[in-house]
Amino acid sequence: MAFISLSAAVLAGGKAERMSRQDKGLLLFQNEPMALSVGRALQQVAERVFINANRNFEAYAKLGYEVVVDELCHQGKGPLSGLLTCLAFAKTSHLLISPCDTPRISCEAFAKLKEASLLSPERIYYLRGTSGAHPLHAILPVETAFAALKCFLGEGQRYSVLGFYDMFGCQSVAWDNAAELLNVNTPDELA
């Protein structure tokens, strides 16, 4: 398997239960929608960026990115629903993903994931910071990960992102800038 091309997805399809069900990607962090901040960082590394969202499609489209929606049959499986949708939509050899609620993430973090993938493109790589694993900041080989994820979800045992990565074959990539990995889950963190 070769690393030929790279697309990227902002994952914005969650329910935002800890944020009073407000669509986190559209909430302003330092006067900018969080999904836009993440998309701009991805754009500096990937050839094409799109957003995975399950509501507020027009508002996301106004950010300047194509929006893809989870199929009904795949919804309800947590972040793996969005991941499957993104892998199905990507037309590149590899896909870089990032959650919409990490507005401080930098293109340097994504470049480090890309570097790892260039060296061994058949594996999944994800960021690991001082606070632990960040599996939704990851890079995946599209074709093989899509096929494996369909099988994994078909087994229906559990819908764990790291469980899928472990089954597939993965490696963490150290990223020590804890501020960039801030995950905005509550109104206090947004402030």
Rank of each mutant, 00 (worst) to 15 (best):
Thr144Pro: 00
Gly169Met: 11
Gln22Asn: 14
Pro103Cys: 06
Tyr165Cys: 00
Phe168Gly: 09
Phe168Met: 09
Asn31Gln: 14
Lys114Asp: 04
Asn185Val: 01
Arg18Lys: 15
Asn52Ser: 10
Leu63Trp: 01
Phe57Val: 08
Ala174Gln: 09
Arg128His: 11
Ser131Leu: 14
Met1Asp: 08
Leu83Phe: 12
Trp175Val: 01
Lys15Thr: 12
Leu63Ala: 00
Pro187Cys: 10
Gly13Trp: 02
Phe152Pro: 00
Ala2Asn: 15
Met167Trp: 06
Arg158Tyr: 11
Val142Ser: 07
Val173Ser: 10
Glu155Ser: 04
Lys62Asp: 10
Lys112Cys: 05
Arg123Asn: 12
Gln43Ile: 00
Ala59Lys: 13
Asp70Trp: 03
Leu140Cys: 09
Leu182Thr: 09
Leu84Ser: 04
Gly132Arg: 10
Gly78Pro: 03
Leu153Ile: 03
Ser81Tyr: 02
Arg55Ile: 00
Ala178Ser: 15
Gly13Gln: 10
Pro79Ala: 14
Arg40Cys: 01
Gly13Leu: 06
Gly129Lys: 08
Thr186Lys: 06
Leu162Phe: 04
Arg18Cys: 11
Leu11Pro: 08
Phe110Ser: 05
Tyr126Gly: 02
Leu83Gly: 08
Ala8Asp: 09
Gly154Tyr: 09
Val142Phe: 09
Ala41Asp: 01
Leu11Thr: 06
Gln157Glu: 15
His137Gly: 09
Ser120Gln: 15
Trp175His: 06
Arg55Glu: 08
Gln44Asp: 09
Leu27His: 01
Leu80Phe: 07
Ala178Tyr: 08
Gly129Gln: 08
Phe146Tyr: 14
Leu27Ile: 00
Val10Asp: 04
Arg104Pro: 03
Leu72Phe: 05
Phe29Ala: 08
Gly76Asn: 06
Gly39Tyr: 05
Val45Asp: 00
Gln157Leu: 13
Leu113His: 01
Leu27Val: 01
Leu63Phe: 01
Tyr165Val: 00
Leu149Trp: 02
Asp188Ser: 11
Cys107Lys: 06
Phe146Lys: 15
Leu127Glu: 03
Asn31Trp: 05
Ala53Asp: 04
Ile105Gly: 01
His74Trp: 11
Arg128Asn: 05
Gly154Lys: 04
Val67Leu: 06
Val67Ala: 08
Val161Phe: 13
Ile105Leu: 13
Ser37Thr: 03
Phe57Ser: 06
Glu17Ala: 15
Leu6Cys: 13
Leu27Asp: 02
Gln43Leu: 06
Leu36Ile: 03
Lys112Met: 09
Gly64Ala: 07
Trp175Asp: 02
Thr85Met: 13
Leu11Ile: 14
Asn54Glu: 11
Tyr125Phe: 15
Ser131Ile: 04
Ile4Gly: 06
Glu115Thr: 07
Arg48Leu: 04
Ile139Gly: 04
Val173Asn: 06
Met167Asn: 10
Tyr126Ile: 05
Asn185Leu: 14
Phe146Gln: 15
Phe164Ile: 11
Lys150Asp: 10
Ala35Glu: 08
Leu182His: 09
Thr85Gly: 07
Val184Gly: 07
Pro79Asp: 12
Gln171His: 11
Val69Met: 13
Thr144Lys: 14
Val38Cys: 12
Phe50Thr: 03
Ala16Pro: 03
Leu190His: 09
Met167Glu: 10
Thr92Asn: 12
Arg158Asn: 14
